[in-house]
Design a protein around this nucleic acid. Structure first.
Length: 476
RNA sequence: GGCGUCGUACCCAAGUGGUUAAGGGAAGGGUCUGCAAAACCCUCAUUCGGCGGUUCGAAUCCGCCCGGCGCCUCCA
C-alpha cells in the first residue's frame, strides 16, 4: 500500500518515502504568537498531526520541527502598545497555543524552535548569502535579490518574466531594487526592539527563520515541508530561494499545503476579525474538543472546509458514537460472556485496514472517518450480545482509530468533555442513587424530577444495563 | 490580469471510465424503554451546476457556458 501525497512543487500525487528510508524529516510552519491561534490555523495543525500519525503508522521514525514565530510586525506593535518586552508578550500566547493544541490532542513535534533564539544563525546565513552575491543593502536593511535566483516561482508556479501584471505591490517599499525582492534583515526603527549585529541594528525578516532553523535541525534537504496554502507564496517560495541559493541543493522534496478553512462560507482571517479560537469554542461554548478536532479533519486538507455550527453538531454526534462503543466494549469485558461472535473481529480488522489505506491515499480523512464509523456500526450491532472474547477486538479497533485519527478519547480518558466546569460529583452521584431508589419504589415523578433538575444544570443522565451514567451536555 | 481550486440529496461529504452513486448529520416511520437518551430496522439522489462532444459505456475524459471560493498583500 503506497503512501501518496499531493506535492505542491510538482503538482502531482506522488509516492512518499523519506530520503534515508528510515526517518521522516519534516518542517512545518507554526503560529506567529501575537494572538490566540484561531481554528483556521488549527485546521492546518490538525492535518499535520494526522500526517504525523500516518507516517509513524507506516513504520517511519519522525523528526518533526515546528517553528514559533516570536518576532514580527504585529508582535512588536502589540508588545510596544502594552509596554511589554517581546518575550513577555509572546510567552503568554505560546503557552496558550500549546494548551489549545493539547485540547485538540495534537502531538508535540519532536522539536519546537523559536525565531528569537536563532538570531545569530540567521545573521550568519544572511552573511553567507551576501558572500554569494544574493543580497544587497539599502537604507540599513538587507534584501534578497530575486534576479539572482532564476527558479523563483517554481513552487507557486508563477512566471515572473515581464511585469507582474495586476499584482499589488507595496508602495512603501520603494527602497527595493525589484518589487519581488524581500527583506532578510530589517533596519531598526525608533522605539522598536532590535538586535545589534554585524548586519547593523535591526531584526530578521520573516522568511529567513524557517530556512535557517529547518536546515540547522533537519539538514540541507528535508523530506517534507508543510503549511497553509497562503504560505506557498511568498513565504515558501522565499524559503526555497534562500536555502537553495545557500546550498545548491533542493530544500524540500515534498511540499504539502492545507486549504483554508472558511466560516459560514466566508474567509476567516485575523484581519477580518471573524475568527473563532479553540478557547472561544471549548471553554466558552463548552464544545467537546474532540468534536472540534473531528470537525477540523472531516474534509481532506486539499479542499476548503466550510466550518459552520452544523459541522460541529454533526461531528459531536459522531464522536459520541466512539465513546459509546468504548463503553459497550468495557461492559462486555466485565460481563465475561463466553464465545466469539461470527465475523465480528474480522469485520473490524478489515475496516481498520481500509481506514489506514484511505489515510495513505493523500490523507483521505473523509473515507477514513467513514470506515471508522463503519466500525461503530459493527460494534453497536453486536451491542449487549458482545462477548468477553469479542471485546478485545472492539477495543483494539477503537485504539487504532484513536492512534490514527485521535477522535476517540479526550486527553484524560474521561468520558465527559475535559473543559467541563467544576461540579460536585458526590452530589450528582447521590442524586443518581436517590433516583435509582425512587425508580425502584416506582416513584417516577421523583425520578423524573431529578433528571430534570440535573438537565437544567447541563448534566445528562443515561440509563444503561450497567447503571446510570452522567455526562455534561455539550453545546453544538 | 496571472495562478489555482471546487460545484454530487435538506446539510456535510466520498467516488475521477463500467456491478444497486460510500459514509455521516437532519427528517419521517417502526422496535426497545416507566420516562429520557442511546442503539437497531425501514424510508430519504433513475441522478452527479448547464449545454454539447468523445466512448459500447461518463458524475468521472474533452470543449464551451454559468456559479462559488482561494492565492497573487500581513495571514494556517
Amino acid at each position: 500500500m503506497a503512501l501518496r501525497f499531493y506535492n505542491t512543487l510538482t503538482q502531482r500525487l506522488e509516492e512518499f518515502r523519506p530520503l534515508d528510508g528510515e526517518t521522516v524529516r519534516m518542517y512545518t510552519c507554526g503560529p506567529t504568537v501575537y494572538h490566540y491561534v484561531h481554528i483556521g490555523n488549527f485546521r492546518t495543525f490538525s492535518f499535520q498531526d494526522v500526517l504525523r500519525r500516518v507516517l509513524r503508522m507506516r513504520g517511519w521514525k519522525l523528526h518533526h520541527v515546528m517553528n514559533i514565530t516570536d518576532v514580527d510586525d504585529k508582535i512588536i506593535r502589540n508588545a510596544v502598545a502594552e509596554g511589554k518586552s517581546l518575550k513577555e508578550y509572546t510567552e503568554r500566547f505560546t503557552q496558550a497555543f500549546l494548551e489549545d493544541a493539547a485540547k485538540l490532542r495534537l502531538e508535540r513535534p519532536e522539536k519546537l524552535v523559536f525565531a528569537t533564539e536563532h538570531i545569530p544563525d540567521m545573521v550568519a546565513a544572511i552573511q553567507r548569502l551576501a558572500e554569494k552575491r544574493h543580497t544587497y543593502e539599502s537604507e540599513g536593511s538587507t534584501y534578497f535579490r530575486i534576479a539572482s535566483f532564476p527558479e523563483y516561482g517554481k513552487l507557486s508556479h508563477t512566471n515572473f518574466s515581464g511585469n507582474v501584471a495586476g499584482a499589488r505591490v507595496d508602495v512603501d517599499e520603494y527602497e527595493k531594487a525589484d518589487a519581488r525582492d524581500f527583506v532578510l534583515w530589517k533596519a531598526r526603527k525608533p522605539g522598536e526592539p532590535y538586535w545589534d549585529t554585524p548586519l547593523g541594528a535591526g531584526r530578521p525578516g520573516w522568511h529567513i527563520e524557517c530556512s535557517v532553523m529547518a536546515m540547522q535541525y533537519l539538514g540541507e534537504t528535508i523530506d517534507l515541508h508543510a503549511g497553509g496554502e497562503d504560505l506557498i507564496f511568498p513565504h515558501h517560495e522565499c524559503e526555497i530561494a534562500q536555502s537553495e541559493s545557500l546550498t545548491g541543493k533542493p530544500f524540500a522534496n515534498t511540499w504539502i499545503h492545507t486549504r483554508f478553512l472558511q466560516v459560514d462560507g466566508e474567509k476567516m482571517s485575523k484581519s477580518k476579525g471573524n475568527f473563532y479560537t479553540v478557547r472561544d469554542l471549548v471553554d466558552g461554548d463548552r464544545v467537546d474538543p474532540l468534536a472540534l478536532r473531528y470537525a477540523l479533519i472531516t474534509v481532506p486538507y486539499g479542499k476548503p472546509l466550510n466550518f459552520t455550527r452544523q459541522t460541529l453538531r454533526d461531528a459531536a454526534q459522531n464522536v459520541d458514537r466512539f465513546r459509546e462503543c468504548a463503553r459497550l466494549a468495557d461492559a462486555a469485558k466485565a460481563r465475561g460472556a463466553k464465545g466469539a461472535s461470527a465475523g465480528f473481529a474480522e469485520s473490524l480488522r478489515q475496516l481498520a485496514d481500509e481506514m489506514l489505506e484511505a489515510m495513505c491515499d493523500d490523507l483521505n480523512t473523509s473515507v477514513a472517518l467513514a470506515k471508522a464509523l463503519g466500525g461503530t456500526s459493527v460494534i453497536f450491532k453486536a451491542g449487549d450480545s458482545m462477548t468477553a472474547e469479542d471485546a478485545p477486538a472492539a477495543l483494539a479497533f477503537l485504539d487504532e482509530v484513536q492512534a490514527l485519527l485521535g477522535i476517540v478519547r479526550p486527553e484524560h480518558g474521561a468520558v465527559q468533555a475535559p473543559s467541563a466546569p467544576q461540579v460536585d460529583e458526590e452530589r450528582i452521584e447521590a442524586l443518581i442513587a436517590e433516583r435509582a431508589a425512587a425508580k425502584k419504589a416506582r416513584d417516577f415523578a421523583r425520578a423524573d424530577a431529578i433528571r430534570a433538575q440535573l438537565d437544567a444544570e447541563g448534566i445528562e443522565l443515561r440509563d444503561t444495563p450497567e447503571g446510570t451514567h452522567w455526562r455534561f451536555k455539550t453545546t453544538p
